[in-house]
Computed example of a mutant assay.
Amino acid sequence: MIGVIGIALTFIMVFGGYILAGGKMGVILHSLPFEMMMIGGAAAGAYALSNDGGTIKHTVSGIGRVFKGGKWTEADYQDILCLLFQLLRLARNSPVELEEHIENPESSPIFQAYPRILADHEAVELVTDTLRSASLNYDDPYQVEEMLSRRIGLMKEEALHVPHALQNLADALPALGIVAAVLGVVKTMASIDQPPEVLGKMIGGALVGTFLGVFLAYGLVAPLAQRLTSVVKQDQSFLDVIKAALIAALHQHATNLCVEVGRQATPSHLRPSFVSVETALREIKRVG
């Protein structure tokens, strides 16, 4: 909702101010289809040329995330802490039984209790792969931490491909607007014998290209790229919480302390309270 409000406010303030200052929309509307064809077409072609199929495929869904916001909520962070608590407790009390859960999480009642987490392939694999490695005696906390840091870093780099591509597009749009404007000037110079009022409209139409390139770059595409970057980084924090709790477990800390380490690694605006997490853990202990 905030994203939609931001776009609406940008358009209203820019074009509203132009109209209130005495500007005429006729010139812009007349030139808009042709300028958008040149600028938008060139931008789409450059985007396709400079990115692979995966980045292009995920661009639309990435833009959708700008308006939806981050994937994970405070409740989800509490759920992942509860899930890790159950798995770590099981790893210490019954390693053989744990194997059934990490080898087939889709049929695990522990994972099934948290459907949103189970639906996230990256999060589930990060948990199961790390616990599986620990069960195979790859349990040096420092080596595992380095491995997890590299893995999460690679995930983050891949997730940031779309916002980086959008930022590159934003950087190119002003230049593409100049290209459209230059072509408009060329057209105007070919009609230099026309009366001043005709030439004025033609020059105004040419300048629409420069305006559109700059406006689209800094009023739309660059903010989208910046917001998407923020959303991606926020979602990746979910993996950092998993990493923090699992590394604490490899250091042989108490299971409750491992959960608290994970809670402390949660972004402040999404961090569940200590009391709510403890209440949830007590309920798990009571039921289990």
Results as ranks from 00 to 15, higher is better:
residue 169 L to S: 04
residue 248 A to G: 09
residue 273 S to R: 09
residue 84 L to K: 01
residue 151 R to V: 10
residue 65 R to A: 13
residue 68 K to A: 14
residue 164 H to S: 15
residue 174 P to S: 08
residue 226 Q to C: 11
residue 69 G to D: 04
residue 260 E to A: 03
residue 127 V to M: 06
residue 143 Q to C: 11
residue 238 F to M: 02
residue 230 S to H: 10
residue 217 A to M: 05
residue 273 S to Q: 10
residue 286 R to W: 11
residue 285 K to L: 15
residue 67 F to T: 03
residue 251 H to T: 06
residue 120 D to C: 04
residue 102 I to D: 08
residue 6 G to I: 06
residue 120 D to N: 10
residue 42 A to D: 00
residue 194 Q to G: 10
residue 6 G to E: 00
residue 193 D to V: 01
residue 226 Q to L: 12
residue 103 E to C: 13
residue 66 V to I: 13
residue 224 L to G: 06
residue 21 A to G: 12
residue 84 L to Q: 08
residue 64 G to K: 01
residue 263 R to G: 00
residue 234 Q to G: 12
residue 191 S to L: 09
residue 99 E to V: 13
residue 39 I to G: 05
residue 8 A to H: 06
residue 105 P to Y: 04
residue 145 E to W: 04
residue 190 A to T: 15
residue 116 R to T: 10
residue 150 R to T: 14
residue 168 N to K: 14
residue 15 F to V: 03
residue 253 H to K: 14
residue 8 A to V: 13
residue 236 Q to F: 03
residue 66 V to Q: 01
residue 90 L to C: 01
residue 93 N to S: 15
residue 145 E to H: 10
residue 122 E to K: 12
residue 43 A to P: 02
residue 99 E to H: 09
residue 249 A to Q: 07
residue 211 F to I: 08
residue 222 A to P: 07
residue 24 K to D: 13
residue 77 Y to C: 02
residue 159 A to V: 03
residue 282 R to E: 15
residue 9 L to P: 04
residue 120 D to R: 08
residue 14 V to S: 09
residue 48 A to Q: 10
residue 25 M to E: 02
residue 45 G to R: 03
residue 123 A to V: 00
residue 113 A to F: 01
residue 3 G to D: 01
residue 246 L to I: 06
residue 79 D to N: 14
residue 32 L to W: 05
residue 154 L to C: 11
residue 68 K to D: 07
residue 27 V to T: 10
residue 6 G to K: 04
residue 106 E to N: 12
residue 29 L to M: 14
residue 234 Q to P: 09
residue 170 A to Y: 02
residue 188 T to I: 10
residue 13 M to A: 15
residue 189 M to K: 07
residue 261 V to I: 13
residue 46 A to C: 11
residue 27 V to F: 07
residue 252 Q to K: 13
residue 47 Y to G: 06
residue 167 Q to N: 15
residue 10 T to M: 08
residue 44 A to K: 06
residue 170 A to K: 00
residue 83 L to A: 03
residue 30 H to N: 15
residue 4 V to T: 13
residue 58 H to Y: 11
residue 231 V to H: 03
residue 152 I to M: 02
residue 257 L to V: 13
residue 16 G to I: 06
residue 202 M to A: 07
residue 24 K to T: 11
residue 196 P to M: 07
residue 73 T to E: 08
residue 59 T to K: 03
residue 87 L to Y: 00
residue 133 S to F: 02
residue 239 L to T: 06
residue 276 S to L: 01
residue 245 A to T: 08
residue 13 M to D: 11
residue 107 S to A: 13
residue 244 A to Y: 00
residue 248 A to L: 10
residue 62 G to W: 01
residue 248 A to T: 05
residue 159 A to M: 06
residue 55 T to I: 04
residue 120 D to V: 06
residue 181 A to V: 03
residue 147 M to V: 12
residue 140 D to S: 09
